[in-house]
Nucleic acid binder design. Structure first.
Lengths: 186, 186
DNA sequence: TGTACTGTACCGGCTGGACGGTTTACCTTA
DNA sequence: TAAGGTAAACCGTCCAGCCGGTACAGTACA
């Protein structure tokens, strides 16, 4: 099956998407090879053709995450409102491609998966460096990053548990706090 | 076996401790009934005597966490440096009893465990309320809490991955930022 | 005697992975 | 242009092993 009318998404990408979905919705334990294959509308053999092992699946996700994070850092650098506001603003889980990859990887890291841990640690460091280089202050960069991280993790944890946890109004108010921190750090 | 020289800890508590350790060190998947029993130096039958199912084990952990969190909130209210500083200061993962219970529960929540999710959500809300009631400002409370949460989650994720991630000096600097936020919010 | 276990044996269900086959797309060659 | 060939992409099934949980007979101690 190479697609009916144009190859919208390759099997490989669809498998990765399904892997992410399973991880996000129900955690690592539910993201079994069978479940991923079924969700991607591919047989188990087909899945194993593209990713010969579960570790390969994680590697595939790590590669995808790395490239998405790189794009995001570039967008952060170029954002007219500044990197700090950008980071916090985009720390609300919005189900973007990056969000999904990031949360998926976090789920794996929580299970002690070494590849996932290393992948996340690397990305976190680069984000902090990017913030620091624009804000010109390590502490300010750290404070902004932690604030965004708190927001992000809370959302990732409690997605579909408590209702919408952080409202738009609260975010706007938080961005004022960010301005305050950034201003003071200059 | 009721202890060799004095019953320092009951089997029940030791089982809960082992459950936490397994969750923290290697994630939910590694925290099997067999592994927990072995680590607690109790037979599987003995474990099932105290906790008839894995769900019961989670319930036991939730109860422990609830009481530890309550004690902590009281300490936060009474802290001479104020609740905000207290919250951020104690957000560095230090392997305290509360830290261990909290991270354990977070691991379970990440796997989509409903009891764990509900337990954490409740505790988070209470912490935020406690901060708000002392700081007198929802946004300030939220900003402080998110900053602490970011710190906490980063530590919980990358414990034993990157070296010591946040230094004492950085924490001191962050506490200045906290003062800034709290002051501005008044 | 009851409480708090130990130890062993067992079971159904699920998991990652191996493996042998099959379909599909495209490329040669006459 | 029809026949033949090849390799990538995929299917479906089987298996060893692990997991949570059951069952139960025995034991140490207060």
């Amino acid at each position: 099956m190479t697609g009916i009318i144009g190859v919208v998404s390759s099997s490989r990408e669809r498998i990765l998407d399904s892997f992410e979905s399973a991880l996000i919705r129900a955690g690592e334990r539910a993201a079994t090879m069978d479940a991923v294959a079924a969700a991607a509308d591919v047989s188990k053999g087909g899945l194993l053709y593209h990713f010969p092992s579960k570790e390969a699946l994680v590697d595939g996700l790590a590669a995808r995450l790395r490239s998405l994070a790189e794009v995001d850092r570039e967008a952060m650098r170029a954002d007219p409102e500044g990197a700090a506001r950008y980071y916090v603003r985009t720390s609300i889980f919005e189900d973007s491609a990056l969000d999904r990859s990031l949360v998926s990887m976090a789920r794996l890291a929580q299970q002690g998966h070494p590849t996932a841990k290393a992948s996340l640690a690397e990305i976190q460091d680069r984000w902090l460096d990017a913030l620091e280089s624009q804000l010109g202050n390590r502490t300010t960069a750290l404070a902004v990053k932690l604030l965004g991280d708190g927001l992000y993790y809370d959302a990732a944890f409690f997605a579909s548990a408590g209702s919408g946890r952080t409202s738009a109004g609260e975010i706007a108010a938080l961005l004022d706090v960010v301005d305050l921190i950034v201003h003071a750090g200059r």
